[in-house]
């Protein structure tokens, strides 16, 4: 953190916006990396300024990548930088891995305010510190104005697996209990509220958060975890359908057990959206052996007291998610064929 300062090290008066030259390989690009991005992410592997990070690792690894194209870049509860760290950290956590190292690839649009880039870079550093990971290699490109949406970020991540569990849809068994680590729908509604200019009494903030802490705690406590999946795009419903299909099992959930905050429910009612399909960035479904369900719930609740047991696995219909409605009838829960579109009346 020695070189990590809160003022943008690139003289903004001189270069208030990203220019094509910041990606051209010349002095401007060198400055951008040496003065801003490099020091912000500083760690011994990155500071070696090699073409790649070189490090020893023993054991089973998890490796993942994700690209972030969110609009707007800043939203209540987070920004694209935080998402880019959390998303990849969480994908590693869902493999049951301890996330260690990330890469960061930036695609900048010509004209992006340098102050915006600086804010996002700092936010990534803070998110990486909080999640206990290091950004050890990266890349920067600049595209012509109009050919990007301000800024796109790609991150890839490597984590190490320090246990013998096979955490995957194929490990899901009949009888497994399904838990959710907290209330759903906040990220999607927070983004939509900004995009559509909707105002609520108090801003609904994204739930974006690193999940490696809670997952490692489950594993360290010896909970028999069979499958983990973060409920991002497509929401809880799509996540569960994917797992039911891959596990060739039926997942039955109870509508009244699924935690949804009052303000999110209100926004969904108003917009004609089903919170089951709204995106989350800090929520995951955990399938655990039935005898460990209560213990798993207690651990999840140490991190968020809205965590809940929401369902169970059966083997009578492969690849199906069913839900007991609030009034006690059963129905299918399916993936959506496209985006959720608000209804007319």
């Amino acid at each position: 953190m020695a070189d990590f300062t809160l003022t943008c090290p690139i003289p903004i008066a001189q270069y208030p916006q990203v220019l094509l030259a910041h990606g051209s390989g010349g002095k401007l690009m060198h400055n951008l990396i040496e003065k801003m991005i490099g020091p912000a992410f500083s760690n011994p592997l990155l500071d070696s300024r090699h073409d790649g990070a070189v490090f020893p690792l023993n054991g089973k690894l998890a490796f993942t990548t994700d690209s972030y194209v969110v609009h707007p870049l800043f939203f209540p509860g987070g920004d694209i930088g935080r998402l880019a760290v959390h998303g990849t950290v969480n994908d590693l956590a869902m493999c049951g891995a301890r996330p260690l190292y990330l890469s960061a690839g930036f695609i900048l649009e010509e004209g992006l305010p340098m102050a915006t880039l600086w804010q996002i870079v700092q936010s990534m550093r803070a998110a990486a510190d909080a999640a206990g990971v290091q950004i050890v290699t990266g890349d920067t490109k600049v595209v012509d104005r109009g050919k990007g949406d301000g800024l796109f970020i790609n991150t890839a991540g490597i984590g190490i697996i320090e246990h013998d569990h096979v955490i995957a849809p194929a490990s899901v068994r009949p009888g497994d209990v399904l838990l959710l680590n907290g209330d759903i729908g906040r990220h999607g509604i927070a983004i939509m509220a900004v995009r559509e200019g909707l105002e609520f009494e108090s801003a609904i903030e994204s739930d974006t958060a690193p999940l490696n802490g809670v997952v490692l705690k489950l594993l360290d406590a010896g909970v028999d975890v069979h499958c983990l999946r973060d409920c991002t795009r497509g929401g809880v419903a799509s996540t569960l359908v994917e797992i039911a299909e891959a596990a060739r099992a039926r997942i039955d959930i109870r509508e009244s057990a699924i935690p949804v905050r009052e303000d999110v429910r209100g926004a969904c009612e108003m917009l004609g959206l089903d919170p089951l399909y709204v995106a989350n960035e800090g929520r995951f479904a955990a399938f655990v052996a039935p005898e460990d369900a209560d213990r798993a719930l207690a651990i999840l609740r140490e991190f968020d007291d809205s965590a809940a047991i929401i369902g169970q696995v059966y083997d009578d219909v492969p690849g199906r998610v069913t839900m007991k409605s609030r009034i006690g009838a059963s129905r299918i829960v399916d993936m959506l064929s496209g985006e959720q579109l608000p209804r007319i009346c």
Binding site: D252, I309, G311, R320, T322, K324, A329, S330, I332
Partner: peptide
């Protein structure tokens, strides 16, 4: 889907 086994809780 009516009549399938249903979730049990806690």
């Amino acid at each position: 889907v009516v009549g399938l086994q249903s979730s049990v809780f806690s």
